[in-house]
Every structure is written in C-alpha cells, then in structure tokens.
C-alpha cells in the first residue's frame, strides 16, 4: 500500500510519459489514445465533483459534454464557411480561437447545468438519476432532429481550433493542451474539496438534515457543485470535439453519461485521481480486449463487476492507503 499522493503523481507522470515516448518512437495512435484518456478523465473530474463529493448521481452529464462539443462544432463550422453565427441584433462571427471557444463552452455548459440542476436537484435518489437522464436525452433528440448542424449525421469541421504559438493538428501539441487543462481541473477539484465549500458539500451528502440545521442550505450548495461540475465536463466535451474534428449526437447520448459514471467507479468515487485511473484503465482495456476478442465488452463487464464487488474504493482505493483527514 502506498500513499495516495504518490499514486496520483505516478498516474499523472505515466499519462505524460507515454505520449512523449510515443512521439519519440513515432506512434501517433498512442498519442491519440492518451489524449482521449486525458479528455475523458477531465470530463469525469467534473462528474466526480457532483457524484463523488456531492453524492449526486447524475446520469445526464453527457448533456454538458455534448453541449461543450456543439459550441465548438457550431462556431468552428461558421468560421470555416465564413458565415456569421448571428446577424441580428449584432453580427457575431464564428471563431476557431480555442482561447475564445473554451470559455464559451464552459459558460454554455454551466448555464445548461444551472437550468437542469435547478429542476433536478429538487428530487433525490433514483428520481434524480432518472430526471438528469431525461434532460440529457431531450438534448440528444434535439440534436438528432436539428438539420442545421448535421442532425443525426453529426457535424464535421475538418480542422482543430487555433491556439497561439501551437500547431494544434500536431498530436503531441494537442495532447499537451488537454493534459494541462486536466491538471488545472484536478487542482480545482483538490482546492474545492479542501475548502469550506467542499466540507459543506460532503456534509450535505452524508446528512442533509444536519447540514440544514447548521444553517447551510443543501440545495444551494449542491446547485453550485452541479454547475461547476457541468462546466468542467463541458470543457472536456469541447476538447473531444476538437480531437475528432467532429461532433455528433452520440456525445449527448446516455451511453456517454454511463461511461463517465463507469470511469469514476473504476477509478474510485470521490478520489482526486479516480477519474484519471478510471479513464486509463477503461480505454486501455477497451484497446487491449478489443484486440483480443470481438466480445471484449463481455470481459470488460466482468472486470467492472469485480471492481464493484471487491474494490469499493476503485483502483485508487485498492492501491492506496485509506486517506486520513489531516
């Protein structure tokens, strides 16, 4: 058993070292795989804030992931076609500047999370799971049936956004951006966890009645957590759209929501680097098992079952000493 802090550092170092080595050896596919892991880890860090700390089992985080993606897709395609995004009341052009697109994706995802959260957080337990799912599916069907931006076929936009001083089409550069944003999100998660807000949020998960009697309204704390959570997942969606240079309704589908939950359970619910461990394990298994057997999902399901049954703290919980609160 090792300290969680060292395990986290090792995980993050590995996630950085593998694509760098791949770059040296000229294996772009490995870099893309690492990028995908970093992006999904980022999305799951967002969900971990709501699910891990707040106990809010959102089965609708695909909504934020997809919305972040569509912000990129829509504005980038406008920019590439030289068509303004809005002509009235003011003319707004599309853009391919990541430094503009990222904050926009975060903002739009946060707004969607505020709306969904304000309604969903009035319920709890299984109802919360179902209502978040329902909202995400609404957005999914909306995207499917909106022909302007590709409808069911999705929306390709051919080139990644621009970042000052970087060629984003170079896999290792794009990986660097995703990795840096993952680190920022992990730092944010850590700070929130250790802050008064984190204490209130975790308190509200364990005993909302008591928290209320101490003068803290669980609903408000949870809503803020849900918005921050959606915003982070939205940023991940933006990166994922850029990785593929394509957005489709699949990003909004319930499978995506489920995948994010699985990542967290695999890695360790509420653990700082649980999403990183989970995403790493998930996509490596998908890759390896997919190469071994056509029925890889069956074996994958078995492994997931074992984690849930025998390693309640996920991968991090199994490898690291129980964290003490000091």
């Amino acid at each position: 058993m090792i300290r969680e802090r060292y395990l986290n550092l090792a995980l993050l170092a590995a996630l950085l070292a593998v694509p760098v080595l791949a770059q040296v050896q000229g294996a772009p596919f490995t870099i893309t795989l690492a990028t995908k892991i970093a992006i999904f880890a980022l999305a799951a860090v967002g969900l971990n804030l709501a699910l891990g700390l707040g106990g809010l089992v959102s089965f609708g985080h695909a909504a934020f992931f997809g919305v972040g993606g569509y912000v990129i897709g829509i504005l980038a395609s406008h920019a590439r076609n030289y068509e303004p995004f809005l002509t009235w009341p003011v003319e707004v052009a599309g853009t391919t500047q990541m430094l503009v697109l990222w904050p926009l994706a975060v903002l739009v995802a946060a707004l969607v999370a505020a709306a969904i959260g304000a309604l969903s957080l009035r319920t709890s337990g299984i109802f919360f799971i179902m209502i978040t799912l329902a909202f995400a599916q609404m957005l999914y069907y909306f995207a499917v049936s909106w022909p302007t931006y590709g409808g069911e076929d999705g929306l390709p936009f051919y080139l990644r956004g621009d970042f000052p001083g970087l060629n984003t089409m170079d896999p290792i550069s794009f990986f660097g951006l995703c990795y840096a944003l993952l680190l920022v999100a992990l730092w944010l998660f850590h700070r929130l966890h250790r802050a008064r807000f984190g204490l209130a949020l975790e308190g509200a998960r364990q005993n909302p009645e008591r928290v209320q009697a101490l003068g803290i309204r669980p609903f408000q704390v949870r809503l803020l957590a849900f918005i921050l959570s959606g915003a982070i997942t939205g940023l991940a969606g933006a990166l994922y759209a850029d990785l593929n240079r394509f957005v489709s309704p699949a990003m909004l589908g319930w499978q995506t929501s489920g995948e994010l939950i699985v990542l967290i359970i695999l890695g360790g619910v509420g653990r700082l680097c649980g999403p990183v461990a989970g995403a790493g394990l998930f996509f490596l298994l998908e890759h390896w098992l997919g190469g071994l057997s056509e029925f890889w999902q069956f074996w994958f399901g078995l492994i997931l079952l074992c984690v849930v049954l025998f390693a309640r703290g996920g991968l991090i919980g199994a490898l690291a000493k129980d964290q003490t609160h000091d």
């Binding site: 700070r191 929130l192 250790r194 802050a195 008064r196 807000f197 984190g198 204490l199 209130a200 803290i216 408000q220 704390v221 803020l224 609160h325 000091d326």
Partner: peptide, 9 residues
C-alpha cells in the same frame, strides 16, 4: 459554505 477556495482544516 460558498467559500470555494477558503481552506478549512
């Protein structure tokens, strides 16, 4: 409770 960055422990 909304001290997002104000440490506790």
């Amino acid at each position: 409770a909304f001290g997002l960055f104000r440490r506790v422990l």
